[in-house]
Design a protein around this nucleic acid. Structure first.
Length: 636
RNA sequence: GCCCAAAUAGCUCAGCGGUAGAGCACUUCCUUGGUAAGGAAGAGGUCCCGGGUUCGAGUCCCGGUUUGGGCUCCA
């Protein structure tokens, strides 16, 4: 049998040899460090027997592809440790996830982080024993019978296997522990060294709330110690940056028990909020959007006609007055349609782009609220573009460019685009869907964005693009979206007069760049760890008088800065300058101005930049130029 | 909505059947200063809400609310 290596050399192997035999032939060092191999494009265990000619690539700790393998094998190691420490625990599944893996257990023992050291110790002990990990196969029926036997009862495994159609299933055995698994795995438990248990949480069997609640242990594993430590450091960093914590420290907002999921914006947070609105408002005006404002309390009937009450009632707040029923609007679209319907629209008027900072309320499930990221009352930077089918591509392409421009201004340069196409249940003919999907694809191309397909995930009324940005810690946040809608305008009897005089319902494009102002602010806080760039920072300058003698001079300077449009304030407290500097740094004020005798004598001010330190003396004009430059360049 | 946990001073938290505590912040006084914490004194609490157990409940039990970690869902 011929085995081709990556350097194109060919090894001649006896029939019946395993991959490991092959690797040994390449070199004993490689055989020692090998974890698995890719043979003819398939990832396989080293113990697998070669049955055909092929090309071989050996995976070691050096290869990024090994990460999933190691994580999955570590999941088995964790399951083994848990089984030994807590006999009677039932096994379910232990998949690899983005930054690690988890394993779901059904156990009478209630796991808590206090169990982690013992489990980790056990894992290390089992790893040290270096059990070989051995693959075996069994007929599916036999495996089911085996797992039904009371002495090794695993009902969850039985349920999974009963749904499969494979004739044979594979098991992986390490020492006394074995688990149903497709593999592949590392050759021995000794290869597993860099892991950490992270958290424990409830999770339904198969994500179904009617099924038993299992206990999920989240953990992670890496190929080397440095990567593990780097990841653990990032988790710590993320915790420090938590927008709920930072937002409170910076006095941006608070939430309270009486209004769950509704934000009380404090002066500073609201300054940031309005800054973002002003920023996007200018961009929209230049692209031909018309900003409008519609009511938050709307007659229920409008949302009955739009279909929201039928499909969305669980998430809506209702109210009534004078025997009439109203809704607190959960979205702005029907209101924008009402504006569109005022007067007669011609095809010449299209596209019409109606934008609104629309405050919406959704009665989200109690368990899903999360700081600013998931709230019940929020404001979308919403707009609806009423257009013809032919105009979709142009409008979407223009939106994609707008979105790129905006995200780049905030320093987000990596954007993931997902195209969700036609779902099984949908309205509209196939030819319209095809046109719309093609238009979205074309728009992405024109904007130079590559997209992943999210098959069947579109809304019932049309396909959509979803935009996810990556923050400074590499975390993903879905913000922007543009959705094609063939349904709503027609339902609400909105139409335009076409060139042939017929009346046609326009296509509606629902779109948002930030998504919601609340969520976007949460993302900004975490991305910048509270150190917002000067151009959006609601605190820009704080004047620190060296002693009370300089309070008047400080007030005068403060007024000049306020007149010039900067956010400035004076620390009037009777404390030493060192203390005020410390406080200013702690409260993340970008610039501190020290004002004392020296400054009054020289007519200059002393500037101190956060995290950098003393910048020296500047005339007021020089300092303001400096601020303006930093603001216009949007520098961080 | 479901599982688990938490809720004590403005903030961060300790106390876990026997008279409510600390640090920071706040107020007053002393100090009037030069690039990351000057000193002293004072004030501040329905211990989330409602029931129960007990001679006695922040503390134990039950119910509710909110928050947190997840599941599911989503801007």
């Amino acid at each position: 049998m011929k085995v081709t290596l990556p350097n194109n050399s060919v090894l001649e192997m006896e029939p019946g040899s395993t991959i490991l035999d092959c690797v040994k032939k390449i070199g004993p060092g490689l055989a020692k460090s090998a974890l698995a191999a890719i043979y003819n494009g398939k990832e396989l265990d080293l113990s697998r027997t070669l049955t055909e000619d092929g090309s071989l690539r050996v995976l070691t700790h050096q290869n990024p592809e090994s990460l999933e393998l190691v994580r999955h094998s570590t999941a088995h190691l964790m399951a083994m440790a848990v089984s030994e420490l807590f006999p009677g625990t039932l096994l379910t599944i232990g998949p690899v996830i983005e930054n690690g893996f988890y394993y779901d257990f059904d156990s009478t023992h209630k796991f808590s982080p206090e169990d982690f050291p013992a489990i980790e110790e056990k894992m290390k002990e089992l790893a040290k024993k270096d059990f070989p990990v051995e693959r075996s196969e069994m007929a599916r029926g036999d495996a089911i019978a085996y797992y039904k036997d009371p002495s090794h009862r695993e009902p969850y495994k039985v349920e999974m296997m009963e749904e499969w159609t494979d004739e044979k299933v594979s098991f992986y055995k390490q020492g006394p522990f074995s688990d149903l698994c497709r593999g592949p795995h590392v050759p021995a438990t000794g290869k597993l060294q860099h892991f950490k248990l992270l958290s424990v949480a409830g999770a339904y069997w198969r994500g179904d709330e009617k099924r038993p609640m299992l206990q999920r242990i989240y953990a992670t594993a890496f190929l080397n110690k440095e990567d593990l430590e780097k990841h653990l450091f990032q988790l710590e960093e993320a915790k420090k940056r938590d927008h709920r914590k930072v937002g409170k420290e910076l006095d941006y907002f608070h939430l309270e028990e009486g209004s769950p999921g509704m934000v009380f914006w404090h002066a500073r947070g609201w300054r940031l909020y309005t800054k973002l609105m002003e920023y996007i408002r200018v961009k929209l005006a230049r692209r031909g959007y018309q900003e409008v404002r519609t009511p938050e309390v709307v007659e229920k009937n409008l949302f009955v006609k739009s279909g929201h009450v039928a499909n969305y009632a669980d998430l809506m707040f209702f109210t009534e007055s004078e025997n009439r029923e109203f809704v607190i609007k959960p979205m702005n679209c029907p209101c924008h349609v009402e504006i569109f319907k005022q007067g007669i629209k011609s095809f010449r008027d299209l596209p019409i782009r109606l934008a609104e900072f629309g405050k919406c309320h959704r009665n989200e499930l109690a368990g899903v609220m999360h700081g600013l990221m998931r709230v019940r009352g929020f404001t979308q930077d919403d707009a609806h573009i009423f257009c013809t089918v032919d105009q979709i591509a142009d409008e979407v392409a223009d939106f994609c460019r707008l979105l790129q421009e905006v995200y780049a201004d905030f320093g987000f340069n990596e954007i993931i685009v997902k195209l969700a196409d036609r779902p099984p249940k949908r309205v509209g003919g196939d030819e319209v869907w095809t046109t719309a999907e093609a238009a979205l694809k074309e728009a992405c191309q024109r904007a130079g964005m590559s997209y992943e397909l999210n098959p069947g995930e579109g809304a019932f009324y049309g396909p959509k693009l979803e935009f996810t940005l990556k923050d400074s810690l590499g975390r993903h946040w879905q913000c922007g979206t543009i959705q094609v809608d063939f349904n709503t305008a027609g339902r609400l009897s909105a139409e335009y007069v076409a060139s042939d005089g017929s009346k046609i319902a326009p296509v509606m494009l629902h779109r948002a760049v930030f998504g919601s102002l609340e969520r976007f602010i949460g993302i900004l806080i975490e991305n910048f760890a509270g150190d917002l760039p000067l151009w959006i920072n609601p605190q820009q300058i704080r004047i620190l008088p060296v002693s009370e003698k300089f309070l008047d001079a400080a007030a005068e300077l403060n007024q000049k800065l306020l007149d010039a449009g900067f956010f400035s304030e004076v620390d009037v407290r009777n404390d030493k300058i060192g203390f005020k500097i410390r406080e200013g740094e702690r409260e993340k004020v970008p610039y501190l101005v020290i004002l004392g005798d020296k400054e009054l004598q020289s007519g200059k001010i002393s500037l101190r930049k956060r995290k950098t330190g003393d910048l020296g003396a500047f005339s007021l004009d020089e300092a303001m130029e400096k601020f303006k430059l930093e603001i216009s360049s949007r520098g961080a």
